[in-house]
């Protein structure tokens, strides 16, 4: 029997733990008829940005994390952080996994690990404490907390002042009024206890940004599994995991939105005209990502188009 230890850096109630990793652990046990058992560790072995290395160097057998937390390392995965990918995390995640298999994986950015899945959270929107945002003009000079990477560039191109702060500081800088707002998916606002602080949500159809996640297994551990077990593990990982993850985010987003409505937060959906203006403004961000992807031999424009097409086609 093989026992896989999963590095875990989120609280047990977080959707990634409760609705993605735990069900996956059970699915792995079932699929391998108990030959592979999965243990999700209680205490983190390192900070979020160290998770990829923790898996790659064998400190844990399996782990999950955010590609953007190690800037410069993952270039191709930035395609899943770009604006307007889609309203359903399920569709985006499944489409993203397929794109990864077909166009991104062969560049070998995930050296040292076996990629079990990639996925995305729900569409990112704009939340503010004071100013009501219903278009690009309201964003000018607004201090918005971002986590770095593409979303930072997006905030800047739109005329906002991005404040790069770790997610652990979101509560402090918003409650204290250091930032005027934040870019987040619905789920994260209540999760970071911000539903009592932000007052307005500006919904950007198909999302202003997204975040790319990975689930990975140490390569040597993967090689040590029998071909039969490898196949069984992948039968519940890959696309199956992406679908489960997307569904979990969608559910968490819906619950988050309900909580926010109950907390009296008002929502505005940006008009088509405003979305078009935003898209125009964000062309340079896309162009920069395409340029970086080209250096790794991937046609970024085609990849983005393929991703959007697949999201569109999902479920039809």
């Amino acid at each position: 029997q093989t026992r896989l230890r999963v590095s875990n850096w989120l609280p047990p109630s977080h959707p990634i733990v409760a609705d993605m990793m735990r069900p996956w652990a059970e699915a792995v046990s079932d699929a391998t008829e108990g030959r592979v058992e999965v243990e999700i560790m209680e205490a983190p072995l390192g900070p979020p940005q160290a998770q990829f290395d923790i898996v790659a160097t064998g400190q844990a057998d399996v782990g999950y994390g955010v590609h953007g937390y190690t800037p410069g390392r993952f270039v191709l995965t930035q395609v899943a952080e770009l604006p307007f990918l889609g309203d359903s995390a399920e569709a985006v995640s499944v489409a993203y996994w397929r794109l990864h298999e077909e166009m991104l994986a062969e560049a070998g950015e995930h050296r040292g690990v076996k990629v079990l899945s990639v996925f995305a959270h729900g569409p990112g929107h704009v939340y503010t404490t004071g100013t009501e945002v219903d278009g690009i003009d309201d964003l000018q000079g607004l201090k918005l907390r971002t986590g770095g990477g593409i979303v930072n560039a997006i905030a800047k191109e739109l005329g906002a002042v991005p404040l790069l702060e770790p997610s652990s500081k979101t509560y402090e800088i918003l409650s204290a009024g250091i930032a005027d707002g934040i870019l987040f998916p619905h789920e994260s606002v209540p999760f970071f206890r911000l539903d009592g602080i932000v007052r307005h949500g500006a919904i950007v159809p198909r999302g202003l940004y997204n975040t790319s996640f990975f689930v990975a297994m140490n390569e040597a551990v993967w090689d040590g599994l029998s071909p039969e077990d490898q196949e069984a593990v992948m039968s519940v990982s890959g696309e199956a995991f992406a679908r489960r993850a997307g569904q979990a985010w969608d559910a968490a987003d819906a619950a988050g939105r309900e909580k926010m409505v109950a907390a009296g937060i008002s929502f505005v959906t940006l008009s088509d005209d405003e979305v078009a203006r935003i898209a125009e403004k964000l062309k340079p961000v896309e162009a920069r990502v395409f340029g970086e992807m080209a250096e790794k031999g991937v046609d970024g424009e085609a990849a983005l188009q393929a991703l959007r097409d697949r999201v569109e086609a999902y479920g039809n």
Partner: peptide, 17 residues
């Protein structure tokens, strides 16, 4: 050596780690 091989940088200023 790991950081060099993966090409890790800082987020904004792109300073190599």
């Amino acid at each position: 050596m790991r950081l060099a091989s993966y090409g890790d940088t800082t987020s904004l200023l792109r300073i190599p780690m």
